[in-house]
Design a protein around this nucleic acid. Structure first.
Length: 423
RNA sequence: GGAGAGGUGGCUGAGCGGUCGAAAGCGGCGGUCUUGAAAACCGUUGAAGGGUAACCCCCUUCCGUGGGUUCGAAUCCCACCCUCUCCGCCA
């Protein structure tokens, strides 16, 4: 959520910045609604004040043993007037609140203009795509050997966009998780957490999935107000919801492995083949809660932590800075890491690292006590995949394949795979 | 699933329907004392919103959430949520 006070006093600037990401703010309507709110609020508060004064007077008169009936007559219609004004205020306030919850975050000034991924800006590359002396196969073909990746079983059990991994493939999948947790938790100092995979709507609102993107989520049927998490970002970031964190506790840095569930209704019709885009996948997520002055730097560090996984796995990748139109709803600045996939002959997203600044924190009332002011203020939140497991698996299969179809194992993973050289 | 207890400020914990935003303690901050620190003592210390360009100041709201009763609700009534204890079941 944007700061309503800032929004009000810099309405035109905000509208302009939001337009960069394709969000059109009806400035005139907003202004008039907000002014209406202000008038009503003043009126309600005046009436409340009057009621309080008179009630106090009645209490005193009664204590003094006086006849309070004349005083009661005076306030007879006050309650109704107040109730009417209050109802009107509530209505206006709710419209404003709902509006605020649907407004995306402001893009950083350095975020390039643009409307989709074609306008993203490449920041740097690491490694170079391997030269094959044979035609590289894609992961679907490679995984079909020995039914190690079984898409038919996945769709029998659940439907399209699900997969079953078997034997060495399942083990490699697990090894990747273990490896990433060890690096991020053990070496980069993130605290490992294990969290609920079902969360309530307050949590979904906190990080920005609700109210606008309900159709991307899987909701649990029945009485419960629960959703399957689309990313560990939701439960982990919401650890700070409704709390005040002391300065010396910051920064908080968490790493969390979890499954992720995404409905992505009307799913673009793209990536229908293979395990690039699944309804269920796993991810090791990095989350940071930091002082506002440190978030910019933290994003660079966090992105570096995600990159280090690709480097250790010796997978070529590039880093792109997302343009305003391609960023997620809650983000102010996002770097995507894109890994080279020989099967597709292009770079594909494997991690997304974002600084949300105070946008999520304001929604979920996550604050820190600023020692300079002594007051609780919204903190800054960041997260990034470190990395997506399924896509990482795909990258390894395709980049490490041999002419005979065998998959060599990256050196960094061997200890997790019984020191074998091949899958 | 059955039975019971309870949700109050950063924390613990009082609170006959009427100056209760709320006693007390802890913690935090400032000060006295001290070479310094500790102890002791004194003072101070919630959040959000509005009136204001801003400070002081003033006002409103907030005692789990949402309704209701009342001139007036932390206190009474209803519904819901959550936590804890015991029993049952269970990985």
């Amino acid at each position: 959520m944007l700061d309503p006070r800032q929004l009000r006093s810099h309405l035109d600037d905000y509208a302009q910045a939001l337009e960069r990401r394709g969000y059109v703010l009806d400035v005139a309507r907003y202004r008039s609604l907000d002014e209406r709110r202000r008038e009503l609020q003043v009126r309600v508060q005046e009436l409340q004040n009057e009621r309080n004064q008179r009630s106090k007077g009645i209490g005193k008169a009664k204590a003094a043993g006086e006849d309070v009936q004349p005083l009661l007559d005076q306030v007879a219609d006050l309650g109704d007037k107040l109730k009417a004004a209050d109802a009107e205020l509530m209505e206006v306030q709710h419209s404003l609140d709902a509006w605020h919850m649907e407004m995306p975050n402001l893009p950083d000034a350095e975020v390039p203009d643009g409307k989709d991924e074609d306008d993203n800006v490449e920041v740097r590359r690491w490694g170079s795509p391997r030269e094959f002396d044979f035609k590289p196969r894609d992961h679907v073909e490679l995984g079909a050997q020995g039914d190690l990746l079984d898409f038919e079983a996945g769709s029998k059990l659940a439907g399209s966009r699900f997969v079953v991994m078997r034997g060495a493939m399942a083990r490699l999948h697990r090894a990747l998780i273990q490896f990433m947790l060890d690096v991020q938790g053990g070496e980069h100092g993130y605290e490992e957490v294990n969290v609920p995979y079902l969360v309530n709507s307050d949590s979904m609102r906190g990080t920005g999935q609700l109210p606008k993107f309900e159709s991307d989520l899987f909701a649990v049927a029945g009485e419960h107000d629960l959703y399957l998490i689309p990313t560990a970002e939701v439960p982990v970031t919401n650890l700070a919801r409704d709390s005040i964190i002391e300065d010396e506790q910051l920064p908080l840095r968490f790493v969390c492995h979890s499954p992720c569930f995404r409905s992505e209704a009307g799913s673009y019709g793209k990536d229908t083949r293979g395990m690039i885009r699944q309804h269920q996948f796993e991810k090791v997520e990095l989350v940071q809660l930091v002082r506002p002055s440190e978030s910019e730097q933290a994003l660079e560090a966090l992105t570096g932590h995600a990159e280090s996984i690709l480097q250790r796995l010796e997978l070529p990748y590039r880093v792109v800075l997302l343009c305003a139109g391609d960023m997620g709803f809650s983000a102010a600045r996002t770097y995507d890491l894109e890994v080279w996939l020989p099967g597709q002959e292009r770079y594909r997203e494997i991690s997304s690292c974002s600084n949300f600044r105070d946008f999520q924190a304001r929604r979920m009332q996550a604050r820190w006590r600023n020692p300079d002011t002594g007051k609780p203020e919204p903190l800054h939140t960041l997260n990034g995949s470190g990395l997506a497991i399924g896509r990482c698996l795909v990258a390894i299969l395709e980049n490490y394949q041999e002419a005979d179809g065998r998959i060599r194992l990256p050196t960094a993973l061997k200890p997790y795979m019984g020191n074998a050289d091949y899958l």
